[in-house]
Design a protein around this nucleic acid. Structure first.
Lengths: 253, 253
DNA sequence: TGTCGTAGGGTTGTAGGACAAATTTGATTG
DNA sequence: CAATCAAATTTGTCCTACAACCCTACGACA
């Protein structure tokens, strides 16, 4: 056990703070299965000594894992790995999103969620919501500087629609997923050949906004699913079944 | 500032560990808007002194917030609240789910997600998936002891469908939301008058399974949305717009 | 006057020790 | 053999100290 941890510790870049690195080590031990649910972690003393750090740092690391419901510490007994179903938080592994295959699943989920969000928004949006969404669209086409302001405006557009559903949970989840995708795109530097496609992208957003204005739920949903599918395809995501969601919607219209 | 924190500290039950309680306090300060993105938190010394605890505890609390991307600590400068879009994890506030109104939103989200998951599962499920789903259904109706085994089998049923989509992200999110709901129901002790409704509940599951067997995506989705809507209504959730999702699906069938 | 460098105080990061509280284990005793 | 108690183990909390770093303000120099 101590050997395993020691080996892993050498693989880490000394960039981020120490407690976070220790938390990553332990988290990997768990997700890789070397520590199974119900197992007891090494004592804080052991971890501290085997990594050559103070117990204080170890405690901060375990505090992070505890916050996620990954482990549960019982005074006098030890810290135990919890079952996956007991987790209190969702945290996506960034490494899963570095390849295109990993992105496919996230885009599929995003299309589902945002498509339905657009449908609800079409039924419930207030005039204030519409104003905010329209403003974001203006920012998108107005700014020529695609790199910064326009991408941000794009996100504001999507978030505003999610908020217009009136459902705080939908808003939270949509924000989360969108940002995961944005971060991945930034890191993977996919955003190269996109610049000349601004008109296409803006055009897709216009269709969504029109459907929202008209209060047409199904049209809004189809437009959103189509937009997200195309956006994914633009950065190279290949969908396994031609996004039956959009196909159905179009066929039914 | 110190006064605000002091007041909040009195409201907390002394049940859970100290660092978690401090993290909750700070987290509430942020989500309530008293601490806005970009603001600097009080120094660790100030927090420790104003709550009458050691700096160590404060540091563990901040470590939890840092893990979620809620705050970002810079050595020598301080800890700063991050923008909501930068969050690294989703964690639902349990207090939001203690009332029925809070549950409505979560059930709506669940119906969306699981409905679409059932649709995808109908297209992609393997025979192994079907076997697992069927087995869960048998466990549900077999065990007479509703309180324990049957509830767990119910969850297994839903998780198996989510896994049958072949999309790990959908599976993760569905598991997370289902468990939030289960935990809330347990805590709120709603699970009283449900016992006599086992046949109804099982019946709804049978409809879902039949649609999955038949490979009928739209029927699976409608059955799932209907089931979740009814399940919510059984524990007292009132949906604001008669769950247009189900209505549409039925009308279109 | 303006600009640069530096010194100082303040803040987080890490280390290490001490004791309390709780649990587990094992030994002792009836 | 069973119950009880004592000791060792482990986490929880507190304390002090210092290093690393940030920010500001003051002063030296051009």
């Amino acid at each position: 056990m101590a050997d395993t941890i020691n080996n892993l510790s050498r693989k880490l870049a000394p960039a981020q703070p120490l407690p976070s690195r220790v938390a990553s080590i332990l988290s990997q031990e768990i997700s890789s299965g070397r520590l199974k649910p119900g197992d007891r972690l090494p004592t804080e003393h052991q971890i501290a000594e085997s990594l050559g750090i103070s117990r204080n740092v170890v405690r901060e690391a375990i505090a992070q894992l505890r916050a996620d419901g990954l482990v549960r510490a019982r005074q006098g007994a030890g810290a135990f790995v919890m079952a996956p179903e007991e987790r209190l938080a969702i945290r996506l592994d960034p490494t899963d999103l570095e390849n295109i295959q990993g992105m496919e699943g996230l885009f599929e989920l995003r299309a589902l969620l945002e498509g339905e969000a657009a449908r609800l928004a079409a039924m419930r949006r207030t005039d204030d919501d519409l104003a905010e969404i329209s403003a974001a669209l203006e920012d998108m086409r107005g700014d020529e500087k695609w790199s910064e302001g326009s991408i941000e405006a794009d996100l504001v557009f999507h978030r505003a629609i999610a908020r217009a559903t009136g459902n705080a949970y939908i808003h939270t989840f949509v924000c989360f997923i969108c940002d995961q995708i944005r971060r991945s795109i930034h890191m993977a530097r996919y955003a190269n050949q996109i610049e000349q496609l601004v008109e296409v992208n803006v055009g897709e957003h216009v269709v969504i906004l029109d459907a929202l204005k008209a209060g047409d739920p199904e049209a809004a949903r189809v437009a959103m699913v189509n937009h997200i599918t195309e956006a994914g395809r633009r950065i190279g995501v290949i969908f396994r079944n031609e996004q039956s969601n959009a196909a159905e919607g179009i066929a039914a219209s």
